[in-house]
Design a protein around this nucleic acid. Structure first.
Lengths: 204, 204, 204, 204
DNA sequence: CATGAATGAGATTTCATTCAT
DNA sequence: AATGAATGAAATCTCATTCAT
């Protein structure tokens, strides 16, 4: 960053450019994989004439990737929370939770794919990992709390809410991985079976 | 490879070196992530005098990565199959299947981590993807068949075996992802809850 | 080339750099021979800070070499054509043709040497060979046509124009090969004898 | 060279191996071009299991190339001299000289091609160049002497023998360059025209 | 703000050569 | 004599980043 003000505040134009670059980065990572998502590719997809512009708006590659992750998770979280608020009982919310995630993923394939790829490459190493882990952690905590309430209210059987939260996320990931390869008919079966399974596993 | 015979047969020394390099590559990918697993890093971990030696033994990076994948999957598969053979009924085999995978992963953390990372980077792009996808596919088919038999024999309730296979793999992956971060006590809970969950989800 | 526009249009600076690199490449090939004309050597002669700059301006070595060939042949062709246009009868044009080539070669020794070396290395192998062969072919066709006209007009005896074109080019190459080693006096003799020979071989 | 005696004398086996390697090198350079004629390719064509064997028999690449050149020129020279000896008058010998060279080239295409390629790459630079240049020089001198005698005896007109020798070699090279691409019919025309041309250019 | 150009570090790969056996 | 293995230098190419304009 060359002549950028240190105030931390971004102008409208700046924000727009960053958004545009982030979107292009998501697209690129989803399409080519993390290791092939170079500035050149990103710039091409963003319609930028110079890779220098990316460096101008992001301190370095790590910051760009962090912003990509933040962007996807923010949109994802907002979507799910909105859906959850429409329901009252814990079983309904649990079902809504899963449905929302699958729905979001269907409409944001590239984002989810990019997220997974970045996560896999980054996992342990970086400083940004912490950000990542914390976000995952807070997601987990929220679901576990939902489950805990359901147990307390007698809406679920008495299982370990942390373990179950883990399972729910795992099942979600599994379904998501099939979301785009599977035929629609197969997908309907999977969703139905998932609902049944969750019900059997959690009901009193 | 300079004047290496095209016969496809490898000498003892050669095989040993390849194994050594593959092991170092696994270690490196697990430690640094796929995109940072350069020849230089791999050579350093393998105690090699030059990165040229890696090129000498593997035609290119893709071949090395393929061999890494092949190696991990072969060891993994052998381990699981041996465990399965000790059991007769489908529910027992299903439980053994999961237990075996978790056990293997505990003893081969780097291998599993490397595998996941490579898979995430590779997914769509390469020709070697096919190998990967086929192996996953055949794993899936085997588990689905196990479940199908269990249903036929009346040992399981009547669910869709393909969907359930997907769920089982998903749960496995979820558990594996916690395997090394979680405290032992928490892990015991997870395993117990997993068994319960599977039981509830599959029993008649 | 990092984020270079695909439009195929080059900026002024870019064109200048390419020209500079091409000139350095010619110099290098002429001086060291094709196989020793590495990017490092070329960069050094061009006063570039890194070999990466060559890769930045040329997609790969093949493109650079192609451009070298194109550049030399373009300058060469323009020079010769201009000279030819000054003459009317076929015998005069034939003489001018040879003279022009010899004159050009005297003032562009490195270019001609580089051309010959590249041609010798490339000959059979590459895709760019076609470009090369086509250019040689069209040169040959042009000369053969000139000779054909001369025969038709009765300015030459009745020989095979394709064979004679081949001989003329061969003689040119032979003279060129002596151009820089021979003493000026010897060269004058060679030129005089060449004129005589061509005259004897072609006149009615 | 590792444990080779310094006496300069070679055992029978050694000589055979060197010959075999030289032959493979000729083949390789002719086929792939000088810059792609690596030890690996040469070893493969020689049926050797290790490139080390080439290094064992030749001090370095330069020596191998020198030996290739020496081998081709020796065979070539012997062939031509034998043909020349069958003729008496200078015009006959001149014709025989050209015919012999064309004939040799037809039966030794790879050798001639390799020679040309090595010459083009080497020309100015190397120490071995001297060897090369000297050989060419002595060929030239021999032809010039033949021509000089013909003039003295009144069998040729009065031209400069050195210049004409240069032209004869140039014409030879030109014809050789067409030798393998041209159709047989075209080649017959070329030969006939060449004879005519030489005759016109040299006769009284 | 944005651009084109340049930079230099670093990646993979190839090569002739060396060496122990 | 010959072989397989190893070596390390060097080659081409790619990349994120910097900088002058």
């Amino acid at each position: 960053m060359q002549a950028k003000s240190d105030s931390g505040e971004l102008t409208v134009t700046e924000r727009a450019r960053r958004t545009q670059i982030i979107a292009a980065a998501i697209e690129t990572v989803a399409e080519l994989g993390y290791s092939r998502a170079t500035y050149r590719q990103i710039a091409a997809r963003a319609g930028l004439s110079s890779t220098g512009l990316i460096s101008y708006h992001f301190a370095n590659r790590a910051e760009l990737v962090t912003e990509v992750v933040r962007d996807v998770l923010a949109r994802f979280g907002a979507f799910v929370v909105e859906r959850l608020d429409e329901h009252e009982t814990a079983p309904e919310q649990l079902r809504a939770f899963l449905t929302a995630q699958i729905d979001f993923s269907r409409g944001n394939r590239a984002s989810m794919l990019a997220l997974r790829r970045i996560q896999a490459d980054t996992e342990i190493t970086d400083s940004q990992t912490r950000t990542f882990a914390e976000l995952v952690e807070s997601d987990h905590a929220a679901l576990a709390e939902l489950l805990r309430q359901g147990i307390r209210r007698g809406e679920f059987r008495d299982f370990d809410p942390d373990a179950m939260a883990l399972f729910v996320f795992a099942l979600r990931d599994g379904v998501l991985s099939r979301l785009h390869d599977a035929a629609p008919a197969e997908l309907d079966v999977i969703r139905q079976e998932l609902a049944t399974m969750i019900d059997l596993a959690t009901r009193r």
